[in-house]
Amino acid sequence: MSEVIVITSGKGGVGKTTTSANLGCGLAVLGKKVALVDADIGLRNLDVVMGLENRIVYDLVDVVEGNCRLKQALIKDKRYDGLFLLPAAQTRDKDAVSPEQMQKLCEGLKEEGFDYVIIDCPAGIEQGFKNAIAGADRAIVVTTPEVSAVRDADRIIGLLEANGLNDPMLILNRLRTDLVQRGEMMNIDDVTEILAVDILGVVPDDEAIVIATNKGEPAVSNQESRAGQAYRNIVQRILGQEVPFMSLEEQPVSFFEKLKGLFRH
């Protein structure tokens, strides 16, 4: 059975593309056939985050307009068996595609035998958002523990439900454990209480994400990264397994580290 999952957030810059890339790779590592679809037409980014920017020949708009076959536009990721990327067009705008065309595209991808189709939704609630959710079976909402991101997530959850995508799952991204412990950042319970949705995972703020994105190698395959571990857990949960939430307690600081800290100031 194949499933189309849209990754959305409302607000920009909260980590939709990073999440899409990591979930796609994570699912492929576990043997699933995955298509990553960049629905952010005009602001294509999933290709660079994935490190596949040099291999684009055709894009999503080419497929929709019939300039090429679906298979021709799908870029095979050589590092992960079964992972493919359908890049967005960079020189067109969101109106180049209609929701009906996106629905047809998703059907086409299902027929190609993909287990999962992951759609990276653009920020905002306009045409691009409507296109991205048109063919989706379920939605994952990404937010960070900030007032602006949570407010937009709430709006997006309402719009998803109005479009028949009920019970979206939440990923709380870029949690700063140190700030939460000091009470200077909303915690997991605060956010889930406000948004009243189930939480799929919590990704700690991690510099490994910046480094991974710089290199075009998703952090999910970095065994040392805490964010990578969080993404691996989320992938397991998408596959229906129960995985306990990882402890987000700060690692105890050694005496030596404390001493170093004293001299730093």
């Binding site: 007032v147 407010r151 939460v180 200077e184 909303m186 915690n187 605060d190």
Partner: peptide, 15 residues
């Protein structure tokens, strides 16, 4: 009060 709870209260009202 810590800013985390301020954020939560403000958000609740806005929403």
């Amino acid at each position: 009060p810590p800013s985390g709870s301020v954020a939560k209260d403000r958000l609740k009202l806005v929403l």
